[in-house]
Design a protein around this nucleic acid. Structure first.
Ligand code: NAD
Ligand code: NAD
Lengths: 206, 206
DNA sequence: AGGAAAATGTTAATTATTTCACAATGTTAA
DNA sequence: TTAACATTGTGAAATAATTAACATTTTCCT
C-alpha cells in the first residue's frame, strides 16, 4: 500500500475533491465512469486506482461516495494532521491562504510570514502574519512541517535554507527560482509559465 | 519532432527559464549536469531531451546557452505569438498577470476580465480590465486564443462554455471546479491542494 | 606522444503508467 | 426463468518515460 504510484496519489486527491462536491449534492453512489468524466480520464483508470487502495464497489451501483471519501482520507491524510505555513503574503500567498482556509482539516495553515512590517501582526483570512525574522522560532513553536514559498524569486534560496534548518520536511516552491534541499526534504515546484507554454505548444500541434 | 513527449515539453520550458538566468549572468556554456542540478533531475535526462530536439553540444564544453535558448524557443514558441487573457482578476489573477507581465514575448496577456464594476476599466500591471459581459467581443477583437480562468469555482463551467464558444483553443483552469471542453480545445487544470496533499503524503512515507 | 579524465550522444534495458480485454456478477425486463 | 445489459475487478499487453551502459571525442597533463 505504501508504494502507490505518484500519479495515483495525485488522482486520489482529485477524486476526493470531486466526491466531496457530489456528497454535498446528496449523491450516495457514483460510477467509475462518472468520476472519469469529471477528471477527463478513463473509467478503467479510476477503477484501477480504487483497486490499488483496496476499495471495492458494488456491482451495478458503483462506489459509495462517503466510504470512498473516508478511505481516500485514510490513505493520503496523516492521522495527526500537519501544520503548514505560507512564506510571503503577497497576491499569490493570499490566494493560496484564502483557498485553503477552512478546507482541509488535516492540513492547516497555521502561520504566514512576511518581511513587510505593514503586514506583520495583521491577520489574513484568519491566520496571523509573523515577521520573517521569527521564522525559525515560530516553525518550532507551532510544529510546522510543510512550507509554501511565495516570496520573490531572488529570496527563495535563502529562505529555503532557513526553512530546512528550522526542520521543515516538505516544501512547495511557487517562486520561479528552483531551490536545493537535502534529500530528506520532499520538494515540489510548480510554474504557471510552464503550464501555459505547454498549452500553447499542444494548441499549435492540434 | 512533433511527437516530443509531454514531459519533455515541460522540461524544455523549465530549461529555458533556467538558461535565461544563466545567460543574464554572462554564462556562455553549460553542462548537462549543471542544468540537471538546477532542475533536480539527472544529466542523462537533460541530454536525452536536448537530443530529442536535435541540438548538439560541444564535447567537454557543454551546450551553448544562447543557442539552446533560441532553439527551445523555435520548438515551443509559436512563430506569430499567442494572445492570452485572464478571467477573474482577484488575488490569483493578479499574481499571474504580474508574474507574466513583460516576461515572454511570444505569449502576451492582452486582456483581463472581471464582473466587478469597480475593476472594469482599471489597468492591472499595464493590462486593461474589461467587463465579463464583453468577453466574446474582446476575445474576437484581440484575437485571444488561450484563456486562464481564475474566477470562483461555481462560475467556471459557465465561463468555460462562453470561452469555448468565443473561439478559445487552449484553456488553463485554476478554479477548483473541473470543466468540460470539446476535444479540439486543449485543457490543463491545476490544483494547489493536490500538490500539497502529495507533499504531505510523501513526507509521511519518508 | 600517449594516457587519463570528462563530457556528449545514443542504443538498449528497465521501470512506470495506462489501456485492453474479458470474466464475474448483480439488475432489469420480457 | 431467462436473456440482455451494465458494471466492477483484474491479469496481461501496450505504451511512455527514465536510466544504464558505453562508445566516442576532446582536452589536459606529463
Ligand atoms: N509558480 C507560479 O506559477 C507563480 C505564479 C505567480 C507568481 N509566482 C511567484 O510567486 C512569488 C510571489 O508572487 P506575488 O504575486 O504574490 O508577489 P508579491 O510581490 O505580491 O508578494 C511577495 C510578498 O513577499 C514578501 N516578501 C518579500 N521578501 C520577503 C522575504 N525575504 N521574506 C518574507 N517575505 C518577503 C513581500 O512583502 C510580499 O508580501 C513571486 O516569486 C512570483 O514570481 C509564481
Ligand atoms: N488552482 C489552485 O491551486 C488555486 C489556488 C488558489 C485559488 N484558486 C481558485 O482560483 C479562483 C480565484 O481565486 P482568488 O483568490 O483570486 O479569488 P478572488 O475572490 O480574489 O478573485 C475572484 C475574482 O473573480 C471575479 N469574478 C467573480 N465572478 C466572476 C464572473 N462571473 N466573471 C468574471 N469575474 C468574476 C471577482 O470579482 C474577483 O475579482 C477561485 O476559484 C479559487 O478557488 C485556485
Amino acid at each position: 500500500m505504501k508504494n502507490l504510484p505518484h500519479k495515483t496519489i495525485e488522482r486520489l486527491s482529485q477524486y476526493r475533491r470531486a466526491l466531496l462536491l457530489c456528497h454535498a449534492k446528496g449523491m450516495t453512489y457514483i460510477y467509475s465512469h462518472e468520476i472519469a468524466k469529471i477528471q477527463h480520464i478513463t473509467a478503467v483508470q479510476v477503477r484501477r486506482d480504487i483497486m490499488l487502495i483496496g476499495y471495492t464497489g458494488t456491482l451495478r451501483k458503483g462506489y459509495n461516495v462517503k466510504e470512498l471519501i473516508d478511505l481516500i482520507g485514510q490513505i493520503i491524510d496523516s492521522k495527526e494532521g500537519i501544520n503548514v505555513c505560507i512564506v510571503g503574503i503577497g497576491n499569490l500567498g493570499r490566494a493560496i491562504t484564502n483557498y485553503f482556509s477552512g478546507k482541509r482539516t488535516k492540513l492547516s495553515i497555521v502561520a504566514v510570514f512576511d518581511v513587510d512590517k505593514g503586514k506583520v501582526g495583521k491577520k489574513y483570512y484568519g491566520i496571523e502574519c509573523f515577521d520573517i525574522a521569527d521564522l525559525t522560532k515560530v516553525i518550532k513553536e507551532k510544529k510546522i512541517e510543510i512550507a509554501i514559498m511565495t516570496v520573490p524569486g531572488e529570496d527563495a534560496p535563502m529562505i529555503s535554507d532557513i526553512l530546512v534548518k528550522a526542520g521543515i520536511i516538505g516544501m512547495l516552491n511557487y517562486t520561479p527560482k528552483p531551490v536545493n534541499v537535502p534529500k530528506e526534504v520532499y520538494l515540489e515546484e510548480y510554474d504557471m509559465i510552464t503550464s501555459l507554454e505547454k498549452v500553447a505548444f499542444f494548441v499549435k500541434t492540434h
